[in-house]
Design a protein around this nucleic acid. Structure first.
Lengths: 195, 195
DNA sequence: GTCTATACCGGGATAGAC
DNA sequence: GTCTATCCCGGTATAGAC
């Protein structure tokens, strides 16, 4: 509270990540840039490079945070859905949709191509944990093996991601669909896919 | 065949659109730029501006062509699916997936936000025709009204688009899924949604 | 650890020659 | 109708002062 002026001190690293989320939420990956993050924080364009060697490493940190947050959101949604494994898995699609629409940080960010060569163990551990959670929820249904769980996960995420893409691309613009309305639809669609 | 050298004559306008599709297929909207198109065609960066006032108008022409091509692909897939209206509608998801994976020109291009202010009647007519075709296929199922057809269309497109996004973002990379394999999955998922 | 200043790059777009 | 040349802008990244 004591930093009305001279804001730029304390934990710039954390602030860079937080502001990156803001930019992603507002304009997606397209408008994310180191320069824009710095500008919004009121620091020079060089300041971020004290904390991250380049753009991709900042994005990697954001990706790791997103993986962790998304995993928590999915867990919470599954628990809220009750005890039936199919209901719990279906809730993933709705949770994914809500998270991506709110933050702009979906799988296209978490698994962005430019991150493949960024060696960031924390991010990798977090994305692995996210996938583990998805496998847990998928194998809790009738599905016996990992081999068969993967296509199921892909279908669920495809539904959530598809709705979120259409939403953020403005496809629903004319028909005032609310986030919750579509999240419900995504969940129902996922439920139908599980059988 | 007589233009090995001095390629830059004939129909640059059409060539610009064709090359734009190439770039979209290779790198999506991210790598599409007037400069890149001109470079690949071996013309100066100024040449395209004789045919399109700005970037967005070129993109609009590409969008219109994509809408027309996608409509044709959807029609063909529906016809190939047989007579059952539900099968015909489900085929839309597979056709959409195939088209977007092949061309990079899905709804995120056809309905790109930056096109809203571009007054291009041909594009608008073509996107309207595309939507008309989707409504035709949707209302041919048990669905009685347009009001109820729209959510159905949204679900089908969400499935196709979701799979295509995951595919182009490299989510399927480790598991060598072929385009046809996933197109079949998308179609089956759509079939499950229709009930 | 942040600043100013700078170099470099690529894309958008225009002017004027041919 | 295409060219060369040019300008502007914004993003990435580095050097060196404080």
């Amino acid at each position: 509270m004591s930093r009305q002026r001279g804001y730029h001190h304390g934990d710039l690293r954390a602030a860079l990540i937080a502001t990156s989320f803001e930019l992603l939420a507002e304009g997606g990956l397209r408008r994310f840039s180191v320069a824009a993050v710095a500008r919004r924080l009121g620091v020079s364009s060089a300041a971020p490079y004290r904390h991250f060697p380049d753009r991709d490493h900042l994005l990697s940190a954001v990706s790791g945070a997103a993986a962790e947050d998304l995993r928590a959101a999915i867990r919470a949604a599954a628990d809220a859905a009750g005890a039936d494994p199919a209901d719990r898995l279906a809730a993933v699609a709705g949770a994914y949709f809500r998270y991506v629409v709110t933050t702009g940080a979906g799988f296209h960010v978490i698994f962005a191509a430019e991150l493949h060569r960024v060696a960031d163990e924390q991010r990798r551990a977090r994305t692995r944990a996210l996938m583990d959670t998805l496998f847990e929820l998928a194998t809790a249904t009738a599905v016996p093996s990992y081999q068969q769980a993967l296509p199921l996960i892909e279908a669920i995420i495809a539904v959530g991601h598809g709705y979120s893409s259409l939403f953020t691309d403005g496809f629903f613009a004319r028909n005032t669909r609310t986030v919750e309305e579509i999240a419900t639809r995504a969940t129902e669609a996922a439920r139908a896919l599980i059988r």
